[in-house]
Design a protein around this nucleic acid. Structure first.
Length: 297
DNA sequence: AAGTGAACCTGAAGGC
DNA sequence: TGCCTTCAGGTTCACT
């Protein structure tokens, strides 16, 4: 699931429960996710206080008071569920309708308290492509997870000039270039398709075609940068997209999926006003690309 | 070096 | 009803 907006949504759900709170107990229900848990994972966390819950690209990084950082990636199907444990809601009528059914995939349970409240944070991940690791904070920036990450598509730093720098001499299709985490970090298959539609650019066009000195190339690069920032910002605002089981940490659904213009809309009409085309599905680098062949050039 | 496709794992959906 | 195939939000590794 989780592309940058979903991870940011998870971060915003975790922060109120975890920042300033201390791990009282950590329970792992299997020896590994995508990778084995680091040695003594639970013991190293217990009694640590969380200073800050941060996000970089699709990674969550929780800074702890012992100078370690809990790094977590949600893979394809990871999600968190936060429950406040209080006297009136001992058994927490969960908003997760199918929690029981998926409880076998509750691989990690964090218990925390902040002197006032107690929280249970459950990590669920059916496909187990996610992972967790503990890294010293002074090694974080140079760690393999983070060292090669590209620019963050949030804020205003990603602009047309930046895209032209990144895509210079790139022969790969534009779709593949935008998906490359070493160039721009955080976009996944859905939001790449959406951003390309919004910019009116074909996913099949070579990335370097936005880098010529022509006026039209510069305009295209500007439009693409604007579209990427806008799609990501709107998706974060909407609480991410909920496909299948994906929910926000309080169990409610994100709703950005109701605004998809191309993703998973094969055969349907293009949503652009003056466009009479419909949405095609092709496979690029082994993954589905959805786009309008009429208005994306 | 850069680009492509398979692999990792489980569940849902569709065809027969 | 069941069995089979295909596909899914990500990343990494092996290969051209």
């Amino acid at each position: 699931m989780p592309e940058l907006p979903e991870v940011e949504t998870a971060r915003r759900g975790l922060a109120p429960a975890m920042e300033g709170a201390t791990f009282t107990r950590v329970k792992i229900n299997r020896p590994n996710l995508r990778f084995p848990f680091p040695d003594n994972f639970a013991v190293r966390l217990e009694n640590c206080q969380v200073r800050e819950v941060t996000r970089r690209a699709k990674y969550l990084a929780l800074y702890l008071d012992n100078e370690e950082v809990l790094v977590m990636h949600l893979g394809m199907s990871g999600s968190f569920h936060v429950e406040k444990l209080d006297t009136e809601n001992i058994d927490g009528e969960s908003l997760h309708h199918d929690r029981d059914r998926f409880a076998i995939h509750d691989h990690v349970i964090f218990y925390l308290e902040n002197g006032k409240n107690q929280f249970q944070v459950t990590y669920n991940d059916p496909r187990r492509f996610g992972f967790m690791d503990l890294i010293n904070s002074d090694q974080l920036a140079n760690h393999k997870y983070f060292a090669n990450l590209g620019i963050e598509p949030t804020g205003n730093s990603l602009d047309g000039e930046c895209i032209r720098d990144l895509f210079t001499n790139r022969k790969a299709p534009l779709k593949a270039a935008i998906l490359d985490q070493k160039l721009i970090a955080g976009l996944g298959n859905i939001y790449v398709c959406e951003a390309l539609w919004q910019a009116g650019l074909s996913p099949k066009r070579q990335a370097k075609t936005l880098c010529t000195s022509s006026r039209v190339a510069k305009i295209r690069a500007d439009k693409l940068a604007d579209a990427i920032r806008d799609v990501i910002a709107r998706a974060i605002e909407a609480g991410g997209s909920s496909l299948n089981d994906h929910r926000q940490t309080d169990g409610t659904l994100g709703y950005f999926q109701h605004r998809f213009n191309v993703y998973d809309r094969e055969g349907e009409n293009c949503n652009r006003k003056e466009c009479a085309g419909n949405i095609n599905r092709i496979v690029q680098s082994g993954r589905s690309t959805y786009y309008c062949g009429s208005c994306q050039k």
